[in-house]
Design a protein around this nucleic acid. Sequence first.
DNA 1: ATGGGGCTTCCAACGGTTGTAAGGTCAAGA
DNA 2: TCTTGACCTTACAACCGTTGGAAGCCCCAT
Lengths: 135, 135
Amino acid sequence: MNIGEAAKASGVSAKMIRYYEATGLIPAAGRTGAGYRVYTGTEVQMLRFIRRARDLGFPVDKIEELLALWRDRSRHSADVKRLAQEQIDGLERKIAEMQAMKDSLQHLADACCGDHRPDCPILTDLGSGPVGQRA
Amino acid sequence: MNIGEAAKASGVSAKMIRYYEATGLIPAAGRTGAGYRVYTGTEVQMLRFIRRARDLGFPVDKIEELLALWRDRSRHSADVKRLAQEQIDGLERKIAEMQAMKDSLQHLADACCGDHRPDCPILTDLGSGPVGQRA
DNA sequence: ATGGGGCTTCCAACGGTTGTAAGGTCAAGA
DNA sequence: TCTTGACCTTACAACCGTTGGAAGCCCCAT
């Protein structure tokens, strides 16, 4: 199986497959005589694993840990759950942060009449407020 | 006013002030005979503007537009409001995306008993599911 | 004059992905 | 058999915003 076919089958682009190999996230694939990378079903499954973990927002270093657990038949599911919970917490934090941004901005936008006149509370606020809004 | 003092007064790091100058977001600051950058109150105010816009998640190119409107006394507040609304919509999209990730992951984590045993629906799902979960 | 801290420039890294360029290889059709 | 086009290879750069470091100069206080 070519890298292109593996990409199609896994949902991971050929570019990223090479990148993951270069960074050591996945082991180096076999090669044909001409130097083409060759992939087996197992390797495609691993790529799919990575793709799905990325879809859930896991950073690559966490995926490395997940892959290690995936391969470890004597793993404790508590370890997996802990990683998942950390990821949930991280997502929660980012969501809250962005929600706060959105709320602030919505508040300002609501106060802007949005017509041809130059007066705008959004600009007024940006230009005059205190510095440390994020604490 | 030194770059260090301007950084403290604006909440933008000296590093970033130089970066913003290099990329053209802000005009080049004046210099002392020794080559030190000099900042006036107006320039600090502009830096604060940038800082607050970044706190609201605006990307730099949008901040460039906001700054242009800020300086333009014949602006239409509708233009400002449009930029704000685009930013709100972008935040909304990202929030929804992360919320979907979080919900999926929470669902999986809830099904994982999280003990010493290796069986884990999280890993099972990651290793076996279909590819295009995000559509 | 000597030290410490701030300033200067330049270069690199983070994370994850994509684009591009220059070249080799494979398969199919004429 | 030759050509064509699609695929593969490597290597390098870009994106975004920020931080870190190194090497060297400047200013102030002791």
